[in-house]
Protein backbone atom coordinates (compact mmCIF):
# COMPACT_ATOMS: atom_id res chain seq x y z
CA UNK A 1 0.00 0.00 0.00
CA UNK A 2 1.41 3.34 -1.02
CA UNK A 3 1.49 6.26 1.32
CA UNK A 4 1.45 9.92 0.42
CA UNK A 5 1.76 13.17 2.24
CA UNK A 6 -1.16 15.56 2.48
CA UNK A 7 -1.08 19.13 3.66
CA UNK A 8 -4.25 20.93 4.57
CA UNK A 9 -5.80 23.28 7.04
CA UNK A 10 -7.75 21.64 9.82
CA UNK A 11 -9.85 23.87 12.05
CA UNK A 12 -7.51 26.74 11.23
CA UNK A 13 -4.25 24.86 11.85
CA UNK A 14 -1.86 23.60 9.20
CA UNK A 15 -1.60 19.84 9.13
CA UNK A 16 0.89 17.70 7.29
CA UNK A 17 0.38 13.96 7.48
CA UNK A 18 1.35 10.77 5.65
CA UNK A 19 -1.61 8.62 4.78
CA UNK A 20 -2.12 5.28 3.03
CA UNK A 21 -3.80 5.39 -0.37
CA UNK A 22 -7.11 3.97 0.73
CA UNK A 23 -7.70 6.43 3.56
CA UNK A 24 -11.05 8.16 3.81
CA UNK A 25 -11.25 11.58 5.38
CA UNK A 26 -13.37 10.42 8.29
CA UNK A 27 -10.76 7.84 9.29
CA UNK A 28 -7.93 10.32 8.89
CA UNK A 29 -9.75 12.72 11.20
CA UNK A 30 -10.82 10.14 13.75
CA UNK A 31 -8.03 7.58 13.85
CA UNK A 32 -4.92 9.45 12.75
CA UNK A 33 -5.68 12.94 14.03
CA UNK A 34 -7.78 11.91 17.01
CA UNK A 35 -10.78 14.12 16.26
CA UNK A 36 -13.58 11.77 17.24
CA UNK A 37 -16.40 14.30 17.10
CA UNK A 38 -17.15 13.36 13.50
CA UNK A 39 -19.22 10.15 13.50
CA UNK A 40 -19.82 7.30 11.08
CA UNK A 41 -23.28 5.76 10.93
CA UNK A 42 -23.45 4.20 7.48
CA UNK A 43 -20.22 4.72 5.50
CA UNK A 44 -22.08 5.49 2.31
CA UNK A 45 -23.04 9.13 2.60
CA UNK A 46 -26.61 8.46 3.69
CA UNK A 47 -26.83 9.29 7.38
CA UNK A 48 -24.75 12.48 7.31
CA UNK A 49 -23.32 12.05 10.82
CA UNK A 50 -19.86 12.39 9.27
CA UNK A 51 -20.47 15.82 7.76
CA UNK A 52 -17.54 18.24 7.84
CA UNK A 53 -16.97 21.49 5.99
CA UNK A 54 -14.58 21.44 3.06
CA UNK A 55 -13.80 25.07 2.22
CA UNK A 56 -17.01 25.96 4.09
CA UNK A 57 -19.13 23.52 2.11
CA UNK A 58 -20.71 20.51 3.86
CA UNK A 59 -19.52 17.13 2.60
CA UNK A 60 -19.78 13.54 3.80
CA UNK A 61 -16.33 12.69 5.11
CA UNK A 62 -17.08 8.95 5.11
CA UNK A 63 -17.05 8.79 1.32
CA UNK A 64 -14.37 11.41 0.76
CA UNK A 65 -10.91 10.10 -0.09
CA UNK A 66 -8.46 11.84 2.24
CA UNK A 67 -6.34 13.13 -0.65
CA UNK A 68 -9.15 15.36 -1.77
CA UNK A 69 -8.43 17.78 1.07
CA UNK A 70 -4.88 18.49 -0.11
CA UNK A 71 -4.35 22.25 0.03
CA UNK A 72 -7.87 22.92 1.22
CA UNK A 73 -9.44 23.75 4.54
CA UNK A 74 -11.47 21.35 6.66
CA UNK A 75 -13.66 22.31 9.60
CA UNK A 76 -14.96 19.71 12.01
CA UNK A 77 -17.24 20.01 15.03
CA UNK A 78 -14.13 20.48 17.18
CA UNK A 79 -13.30 23.58 15.14
CA UNK A 80 -16.49 25.33 16.16
CA UNK A 81 -15.56 25.74 19.79
CA UNK A 82 -13.20 28.63 20.40
CA UNK A 83 -9.86 28.04 22.12
CA UNK A 84 -11.18 29.56 25.33
CA UNK A 85 -14.06 27.09 25.30
CA UNK A 86 -16.66 29.55 24.03
CA UNK A 87 -19.26 27.82 21.92
CA UNK A 88 -20.49 28.70 18.48
CA UNK A 89 -23.98 30.25 18.64
CA UNK A 90 -25.29 27.16 16.84
CA UNK A 91 -23.93 24.87 19.54
CA UNK A 92 -25.39 27.20 22.14
CA UNK A 93 -28.78 27.11 20.45
CA UNK A 94 -28.76 23.32 20.16
CA UNK A 95 -28.31 23.13 23.92
CA UNK A 96 -30.90 25.77 24.77
CA UNK A 97 -33.58 24.55 22.36
CA UNK A 98 -33.29 20.91 23.40
CA UNK A 99 -32.18 19.91 19.90
CA UNK A 100 -29.91 17.16 21.21
CA UNK A 101 -31.05 13.71 22.19
CA UNK A 102 -28.71 10.77 21.63
CA UNK A 103 -26.22 13.17 20.09
CA UNK A 104 -24.96 10.91 17.34
CA UNK A 105 -26.27 13.05 14.49
CA UNK A 106 -25.59 16.30 16.33
CA UNK A 107 -22.11 17.08 14.90
CA UNK A 108 -23.39 16.47 11.37
CA UNK A 109 -26.48 18.58 11.97
CA UNK A 110 -24.44 21.44 13.40
CA UNK A 111 -21.95 21.41 10.52
CA UNK A 112 -24.74 21.62 7.96
CA UNK A 113 -26.36 24.41 9.95
CA UNK A 114 -23.02 26.21 10.11
CA UNK A 115 -22.70 26.16 6.32
CA UNK A 116 -26.26 27.38 5.89
CA UNK A 117 -26.06 30.25 8.37
CA UNK A 118 -22.71 31.29 6.93
CA UNK A 119 -24.50 32.06 3.69
CA UNK A 120 -27.88 33.09 5.04
CA UNK A 121 -28.40 34.02 8.69
CA UNK A 122 -32.18 34.34 8.30
CA UNK A 123 -33.23 31.22 6.50
CA UNK A 124 -36.88 30.33 6.27
CA UNK A 125 -37.97 27.06 7.83
CA UNK A 126 -38.07 25.35 4.44
CA UNK A 127 -34.48 26.28 3.75
CA UNK A 128 -33.39 24.98 7.13
CA UNK A 129 -35.18 21.70 6.54
CA UNK A 130 -33.55 21.45 3.13
CA UNK A 131 -30.09 22.23 4.52
CA UNK A 132 -30.30 19.46 7.13
CA UNK A 133 -32.05 16.98 4.86
CA UNK A 134 -28.78 15.12 4.35
CA UNK A 135 -28.50 14.21 8.01
CA UNK A 136 -30.79 11.57 9.39
CA UNK A 137 -31.99 11.83 12.97
CA UNK A 138 -33.99 9.07 14.62
CA UNK A 139 -34.58 10.78 17.98
CA UNK A 140 -35.88 14.31 17.62
CA UNK A 141 -38.32 14.45 14.73
CA UNK A 142 -36.16 17.41 13.61
CA UNK A 143 -38.46 19.98 15.17
CA UNK A 144 -36.13 21.31 17.85
CA UNK A 145 -33.18 21.12 15.49
CA UNK A 146 -34.98 23.39 13.03
CA UNK A 147 -35.87 25.71 15.90
CA UNK A 148 -32.27 25.77 17.12
CA UNK A 149 -30.94 26.71 13.70
CA UNK A 150 -33.52 29.46 13.45
CA UNK A 151 -32.68 30.90 16.84
CA UNK A 152 -28.92 30.61 16.24
CA UNK A 153 -29.32 32.71 13.12
CA UNK A 154 -31.20 35.37 15.03
CA UNK A 155 -28.58 35.37 17.75
CA UNK A 156 -25.66 35.55 15.35
CA UNK A 157 -27.32 38.51 13.72
CA UNK A 158 -27.92 40.39 16.95
CA UNK A 159 -24.28 40.02 18.00
CA UNK A 160 -22.97 41.15 14.65
Amino acid sequence: MKEMEIQFQLNGCDVCVDVPSDTLLVDLLRDTLGLKGTKTGCREGECGACTVLLDDIPVNSCILPAFKVEGRSVTTIEGLTKDDGRLDPIQEAFIQEGAVQCGFCTPGMIMNAKALLGKDPHPEEGKIREAISGVQCRCTGYQKIVQAVKSAGQKMDSTR
Binding site: P58, V59, N60, N112, E130, S133
Partner: peptide
Protein backbone atom coordinates in the same frame (compact mmCIF):
# COMPACT_ATOMS: atom_id res chain seq x y z
CA UNK B 1 -29.93 14.27 -6.19
CA UNK B 2 -29.28 12.66 -2.77
CA UNK B 3 -28.67 15.39 -0.25
CA UNK B 4 -26.88 18.76 0.01
CA UNK B 5 -23.61 17.01 0.88
CA UNK B 6 -23.92 14.62 -2.05
CA UNK B 7 -24.72 17.49 -4.41
CA UNK B 8 -21.67 19.39 -3.20
CA UNK B 9 -19.31 16.59 -4.19
Amino acid sequence: VGSPQIRNM
